[in-house]
């Protein structure tokens, strides 16, 4: 009997350019190499415009990079061409800066809907949602819509939604930016606990030094040079 290999994420020669309205192209991200294993927690830092959000979007297969590869378990997440949505549904949990819960659905419905999209449904999904809501102290708020929840509650619900389908990778884009220090601490504690328990790879983009200090590994991105000068800045820096 062989032990199951942990999820393995690898990024090679990643470049991404955006087209400007005047036709020129601006390089938004440049990263030569990065690899991570399941259960790792990585802080993604860098100045504004260094491509933190772009990098997370590429990892979530929301955008296809101009150049380079993203491999998960040795397989390109963009191949075949329509694989992006499946990759997100089955393997990625995404947490946005502004929560972005679906406004027309209650807290528990937001969780169950995410589970259904990931093909987790029925009693197992309900049990998992109830357990997460209790653990995140949202049980009494489960029937409320996002507009009736506090910012802290909304972000906790977003964390629960991101982990409900046991993803391999959690990508969090400034998840505590709109929270006070106390709530930010609560959210980060829960997030790191949940990822450690299930050996999920956690990548958190942040500007917050206090959050950054929580991570054993920090990936530093730097603002790429103009596209006319194709020489990329090598940004990875493990701490």
């Amino acid at each position: 009997m062989t032990a199951q290999l942990p999820p393995f994420l690898e990024v090679r020669q990643l470049r991404h350019c955006y087209s400007q309205p005047d036709g020129s192209r601006v390089e938004a991200l440049s990263l030569d190499h990065m690899s991570a294993v399941g259960g790792e927690a990585i802080a993604l830092v860098g100045p504004s415009g260094s491509g933190k959000t772009t990098f997370l979007h590429i990892l979530a297969a929301l955008i296809r990079p101009t150049h380079g590869e993203v491999l998960f378990g040795g397989r390109d997440i963009f191949a075949p061409r329509q694989a992006g949505a499946h990759w997100r549904a089955m393997s990625v949990g995404y947490i946005f800066q502004d929560m972005n819960l679906l406004p027309d659905f209650s807290a528990i419905e937001n969780l169950l809907l995410a589970a259904e999209i990931s093909n987790v449904s029925g009693p197992a999904a309900t049990e998992r949602a109830n357990s997460l809501l209790r653990r995140l102290d949202l049980w009494n708020q489960r029937g409320r819509r996002p507009a009736d929840l506090s910012l802290g509650e909304q972000q906790r619900a977003a964390v629960a939604r991101a982990v409900i389908h046991f993803p391999s990778v959690i990508l969090a884009d400034e998840p505590t930016a709109s929270l006070d220090a106390e709530n930010a601490g609560i959210v980060m504690n829960i997030l790191t606990e949940l990822c450690a328990e299930s050996r999920t790879l956690l990548i958190v983009a942040t500007h917050d030094e206090a959050i950054k200090k929580r991570f054993a590994r920090v990936l530093q991105l730097q603002r790429p040079r103009a596209a006319e000068n194709p020489e990329p800045v090598l940004p990875e820096k493990a701490v």
């Binding site: 949505a85 679906l102 999209i117």
Partner: peptide
């Protein structure tokens, strides 16, 4: 867009 980010296909 959010549903898409959660994994809903086009």
């Amino acid at each position: 867009a959010l549903l898409g980010a959660l994994g809903a296909s086009r």
